[in-house]
């Protein structure tokens, strides 16, 4: 399964807005996603927005990007219109239903 559109969009945005190279950007986003327990292939826009707000600024700062918070905020605003991959139901949605959740 290829990486999600959300992941690709964020990587493209970071590559344009920072001095980091393509590989470095992708690695940094992957590290932040792993810290958040998320997968680049299935991450949704709302989940990525949380990662951009809570984890990415710190990751960028540790790589010498001073205004990481502003960059992440700008990229996060652009995720609103992106459709998430919805063909497969997530395991947590299934387990929520199996235990009596909606």
């Amino acid at each position: 399964m290829p990486d999600s559109t959300v992941f690709e969009t964020v990587c493209d945005g970071l590559e344009r807005a920072t001095s980091l190279g393509r590989l470095e950007v992708r690695g940094t986003v992957r590290i932040a996603l792993k810290q958040a327990g998320l997968d680049p292939r299935t991450v949704r826009a709302d989940e990525m927005a949380v990662v951009l707000r809570k984890l990415m600024p710190g990751e960028l700062q540790s790589r010498g990007i001073a205004d990481g918070e502003r960059v992440c905020e700008a990229i996060s605003r652009g995720l609103g219109g992106l459709a998430s991959r919805g063909a497969e139901e997530s395991p947590e949605a299934i387990f929520k239903r199996l235990g009596g959740g909606a």
Binding site: A36, L55, E92, F95, L98
Partner: peptide, 17 residues
């Protein structure tokens, strides 16, 4: 568990796994 720490998961569902 990591998503829960960032407010992205339901504690009951996390425990269910």
């Amino acid at each position: 568990r990591r998503r829960l720490a960032l407010g992205m998961a339901d504690p009951v569902v996390v425990d269910r796994f």
